[in-house]
Write a protein that binds this DNA or RNA. Structure first.
Lengths: 266, 266
DNA sequence: CGAATAGTGTCTTTTAGACACTATGTA
DNA sequence: TACATAGTGTCTAAAAGACACTATTCG
């Protein structure tokens, strides 16, 4: 009931399909996960031209009966072999890239998405599940961004994804989507430090973040020989006032005082 | 060098053009302007089916050699007859709407854009320049949103545009893009009040906003019989810490005190 | 016990927010 | 002069930020 060249021919006063070359619509993914205090992104190695051998974001075509988000979720499931039905994966639209020459083969319009996978902070999710030849693998984000080796305009997309995540962590609890359902405040602070490239003071972070979380009453077993930390859950909610990200403070702010000695959140 | 069915046939291992119905790519516009303390949006009345007679966002097809942003800028120029070369119009991508059934005629993917036009706060820019049959006209945003009479999914797009604008005004000087190059703090505060639906206290607004603006040294002539206000310009910059929008403060925040008696910014 | 971590206490400095007040213009 | 607005001063309460301190658990 929706597509087909017949209805396309009837389309609007101004639309003439012959005037418009065919467009390929794809959904690309910026998939993040944290491990060992480092933010990682899932990348595939390209097997064909152009950019043969280069790294690229995973993605694929949007099917005729899919929305871009549905396609992104499907691609994510295929790429990671994770059960997205049960696992609450955060997925949101990032931006759409439409430059006519962004792919030399034809007009490819990509709707980029941001996906956050949960880890316990140490082990990255299994991807590259062997099935696909061009399987994805994890790469440290800050390393990839500085080495500038991504295919197409994927460097810009990745940058946008990091910016979105870092920004949203200021005023939402979205960082918790990079952790298991239940997590400790130290785990959550580790996520902030990985994404923001900061070293936030633990005491103040706890005080400021705790009101926005739900205490499960349970305790994590103390792994390293300290007091056992409380386990929290987080609903997706706004944080007000927002947490300050020292990394993005405007340096050239005339009315600002000299920065304090330590990177200080909160 | 980019498009054509020949290169499309060579496209990737997985792409088979026959599997994908043709896609129309359009750029839609959420155009805002402020007048008399009210935020307005430019809308066209639809002449054809579907949604004949209903209001809709202006927009049009993305040409084969255009990016979506270029198409949006072109549509904006055609719709408003404004000289976008000289006038600094704020234009940014909002989001992309890809639901397969969002247009009953065929698959239409729309990249929605947010555009901000400058006014002196009283007179709306001339649109509906007579040339086009389906010319745009201004409508108060809050009225449109409550009456829910927009075609397609344009209600959701408009809502997203307002949300983006209101949010960005918390941490940038983007509100100045709805005013002339030089403006007074009262004009700027009027923009905030129109978008946020607030009544911010003038004194504190001035104190908090001034450090982020540039004083031109010039004065506006006092229109209503008061002291003449200083004229400022604003570069696009971040505001830190962000201004608080009382309208979006989380009401159900367990750790929050009862709200103060007056809507209070800053 | 000693080491390491969690979470709270507390002190100082800064900011928010309410509101008064003075200066400067118009009618 | 009467009035209206611009911008600053000022006071109080709250929050930020730095850092100390106690409690708890592991080895």
């Amino acid at each position: 009931m929706t597509q087909g060249s017949k209805s396309a021919r009837e389309f609007l006063e101004s639309y003439n399909p012959g005037d418009y070359p065919s467009i390929a619509l794809t959904a690309d993914l910026v998939v993040f996960a944290v491990s060992a205090g480092t933010l990682n992104v899932a990348l595939v190695r390209r097997g064909g031209h152009p950019f043969k051998g280069a790294l690229a974001l995973p993605g694929g075509f949007v099917g005729p009966e899919e929305s871009a988000e549905q396609a992104a979720r499907r691609e994510l499931a295929e790429e990671t072999a994770l059960d997205l039905g049960s696992l609450p994966v955060h997925l949101e639209q990032l931006a759409t890239y439409t430059h006519p020459d962004r792919d030399p083969r034809m007009r490819v319009v990509t709707v980029a998405h941001l996906a956050l996978l949960a880890t316990d902070g140490t082990v990255l999710p299994e991807i590259a599940a062997g099935s696909d030849a061009a399987a994805a693998a994890w790469h440290p984000v800050h390393h990839i961004l500085s080495s500038n080796e991504l295919a197409f305009d994927h460097q810009a997309i990745l940058q946008e994804g990091l910016k979105r995540l870092a920004g949203k962590m200021e005023y939402t609890t979205v960082a918790a989507r990079l952790l298991p359902e239940e997590f400790t405040l130290t785990q959550l602070r580790t996520v902030y430090d990985a994404v923001w490239d900061t070293a936030l003071p633990a005491g103040n972070f706890t005080r400021k973040m705790m009101p926005h979380l739900t205490d499960t009453g349970r305790k994590a077993r103390a792994a390293t020989g300290g007091a056992p930390a409380a386990l929290f859950t987080a609903a997706d909610r706004h944080i007000h006032p927002p947490l300050a990200n020292p990394g993005t403070n405007p340096a050239g702010n005339q009315a600002s005082k000299p920065a304090s000695k330590v990177k200080g959140l909160v």
